[in-house]
Design a protein around this nucleic acid. Sequence first.
RNA 1: GGGCGGAUUCCAGAGCGGCCAAAUGGACCAGACUGUAAAUCUGGUGGCUCAGCCUUCGCAGGUUCGAAUCCUGCUCCGCCCA
Length: 404
Amino acid sequence: MKFPPVEEQMAVIERGIVDLVDRQALQARLELSRTEGRPLRVKFGIDPSSPDIHLGHTVPLRKLRDFQRLGHRVIVLWGTATAMVGDPSGRNKTRPALTREQVEQNKQTYRAQVGAVLDIANIEERENGEWFLRQSFMDCIALASRYTVARMLERDDFQKRYKERQPIAVHEFLYPLLQGWDSVELCCDIEIGGSDQLFNLLVGRDLQAQSNQTPQICLTMPLLEGLDGSQKMSKSLNNSIGVAESASQQFGKLMKVPNELLAKYFLLLTDTPTAVVEPLVQNPLEAKFALAAAIVTGFHGNDAAMAARAEYDRVHQRGGLPDELPEWSPNQDTRRTADGRVALPTGIAAAGLAPSTSDARRLIQGSGVRVDGVVCTDVNAAFGQGTYVVQVGKTRAARWIIRD
RNA sequence: GGGCGGAUUCCAGAGCGGCCAAAUGGACCAGACUGUAAAUCUGGUGGCUCAGCCUUCGCAGGUUCGAAUCCUGCUCCGCCCA
């Protein structure tokens, strides 16, 4: 196995990172790996606790890919056991517990999505259920005895919650120990995580040292803010861009990234060199197009990215229609007016363009609804036999086919 | 085990007998503007057969002409003492 010179490796590794504990040890270990021809074992734990991966998750995954390209051994550790405990990092609430079935299901969908970033044929996949699901309660006690309450409470998340009188369940104290123990089981050289993971990663060092292993190097990546520009990207906050979303969805959402965040998105989600990014960001619109194209190409290929761009131009810059226009026709349950026509609010709700008739009415009154391209503000409008294109806002539209 | 405090619409958080579908902020949606689905500004955000009607303020009862607001019990949660 041939590895690039340490200097070169360091440059790749350090791009975009937050913490590195510690830098000298990393250099030394890279040196050693080079002389011995031994790849370093780089672990990344994923708790399959929600069904989808978004761009925020891809930040550490991309760093793993860097390691993979440098020739090192990437270990993806599925937290099948830890997902059932729930990581307290960055949380102000206890996570809901998951069943084994949910975890297994999530893992399957995750796996496919991880493959969009990593060369999945070339990684080591493990599950911490391998050891934790077999251990006894006494093993758990033994593990718990390795750390003190005071040290746990040092942790920012816990301190905050404690001060704010939020509940902290006892099992949440166990989480960092489980994660740290994984590193012992896997003999990790390096562990990667989000910057909120630093505490957990450091616990791994302590446990490794106690087990006579060389403590792992801890490397953290920034947390990616979501489209709202302030909170961490998260599906439940509805500010995320999913890996599995369509090209046009991704493209559109990327155009929504706040201007201030552009440079960060480039740094963490693309390979574009900083020297190119800096001048580019001066023109936010162009930068956004470039960003969206780069990311969408990565997940869907060049053609899909071009098509998404073309659709964006048409829909948003010229007020045109999206590529895919769903069709809708009334059925027996659809309420009709006295003369047998379909009232506009009723139809909008029935066609799924708005959550309720009341909401549809408001949209109509707020001139957010167009029929065949013409704004309609008449709440009492109704349509008989024919075909109509009904648009709600810029992105929601349907072709109504009313046969009678 | 004892004492105290709390549960409000998507979230946070006002309201403490009628003026409450419920302040304010966030989030979200729509509109204007900008070759940005950014920023800024404006409007909206329980449902409906919609100038009216119906259902919401932890759950179940009760007092009252009238309750998110008062009383009783229950459930869940936080804090303090042991």
